[in-house]
Design a protein around this nucleic acid. Structure first.
Lengths: 245, 245
DNA sequence: CGTTTCTTTGAATGGGATCAATACTTGTGG
DNA sequence: CCACAAGTATTGATCCCATTCAAAGAAACG
């Protein structure tokens, strides 16, 4: 696995420190955990009062109806922060599962709520990450309630693309995509069958391509934006960290 | 309008201070704003770096697709706290609209991030509120992706009931309900027509009743739980503040 | 008391689910 | 290295839930 240094820009680079940098400065001895693909880290309704910082890999938050129907609520990508529980709300709303091999840090409540100025700075960055998580979930919920299959899938693909591009994990419109069509259906609220149909249509229309089984290539961003009802500039402004305020 | 004292339990009552009490202790001179029913307080994509504390009334957070289709993301009830933006993420993901006459306080970022212990306590309560908001949104998203009309509507009604009961705004299964069927459709991702049909079916089956046009009465909580796939005990534990940890 | 907004009900349409069958991958152990 | 199993992708056929369109009551409101 790659070292976490990937997420830390070279010194001298003029930028706001990332949440990870900031946290590691506050808690230099934080323990780094890892999980293999498919591993469930937390079960819905389990006790949990902590947060999570993802260093590497993809992680899904999901919920299930009594009959077993599953919905993925959010996907964490490298560098992301997520509130799972809090001291006064110590119940995990979602199950947490590794969609790929992953490395992460668990943040205990006491690790961020102290009086020191560097912790205050850390909290600012955490608050911003929470706002962006809420933005993503809102966009997804909007399309779950009001969009059709093409709208939802175009949105999902663009969301992954924009977020991965911001951390340098794309080449052109191409990126590693570790989700099966089943999982993509759980994210978009569609059956695996209809995910397949809709993606094949996108492919026939030249919107996307599958260069390898584990990669995807967005070939027509404008068309995908149009289908998903997204304005890329506005969208980036909403869900990406701004490095130079 | 009622005084904010409604939300502050009588002295001598053994309990954890609510977020509102805690905030008013930290910022006693905070300005209280009010808005009439139907008023839009914030527009999607507007600048916003603050949070909101609702003292009285119902407030909706919503998003819109380019064609105008609207989805309500979350509804705030009296006593609720919501993160709208942050210093490092100063964009509102949602529009904010008063569903009834409402009174609220805007919380600036600097008002909660200081080193004082009472602010640390306030942040603990804020973090818990954010976790519960995420829980609600996750439950809604789950049903938006995987539930049918009956499931979604039963969930929505139960969510309002459980939250209102916790703050003493119900009598039996009965409570004031200021949303039109149109708005309820925007919350559950259904057309107003289908909301009407499904609610009438609930009524015929004895699950609910409309004692007055602005009130609703949940007459069979067990049946509503079964339709929505909710276990009331677990659900309360997830979305309600615990007053005696 | 007229006007707007909201609710209610019917009929027709359609998008996506489900069921089913076949290929294609990937991984495992003999 | 191959045989087999398990998971994943693809495509067709059918069905059903919810949308849309339409029109008429009912309630709220100035």
């Amino acid at each position: 696995m790659k070292p976490q240094v990937d997420l830390v820009p070279p010194p001298g680079d003029r930028h706001d420190p990332s949440l990870i940098e900031c946290f590691l400065r506050v808690q230099p001895k934080a323990q780094i955990d890892s999980a293999r693909k498919g591993r469930t880290l937390i079960q819905e309704d389990d006790f949990a009062d902590h947060s999570m910082l993802l260093l590497e890999g993809w992680i899904a938050f999901s919920k299930m109806l009594p009959e077993g129907e599953t919905q993925i609520i959010d996907v964490m990508l490298p560098g992301d922060f997520a509130l799972i529980g809090a001291a006064n709300a110590p119940v995990a709303a979602c199950s947490v599962e590794a969609l790929s091999d992953a490395r992460f840090i668990n943040i205990r409540p006491a690790h961020a709520n102290g009086p020191r100025p560097d912790m205050a700075r850390l909290r600012e960055l955490m608050a911003a990450e929470i706002v962006r998580t809420q933005s993503r979930t809102s966009e997804l919920l909007l399309r779950m309630g009001r969009g059709n299959a093409a709208n939802r899938l175009a949105y999902a693909l663009l969301e992954f693309y924009v977020r991965l591009e911001a951390i340098g994990l794309t080449r052109g419109g191409r990126f590693t995509f570790p989700m099966t069509q089943q999982k993509l259906g759980e994210f978009t609220g569609l059956s695996n069958v209809h995910v397949c149909r809709t993606l094949r249509r996108f492919e026939r229309e030249g919107l996307i391509a599958w260069p390898t089984p584990t990669e995807i290539d967005l070939r027509d961003l404008d068309a995908l934006c149009e289908r998903s009802g997204i304005d890329l500039t506005v969208f980036r402004n909403e869900i990406l960290a701004r490095r130079t305020p």
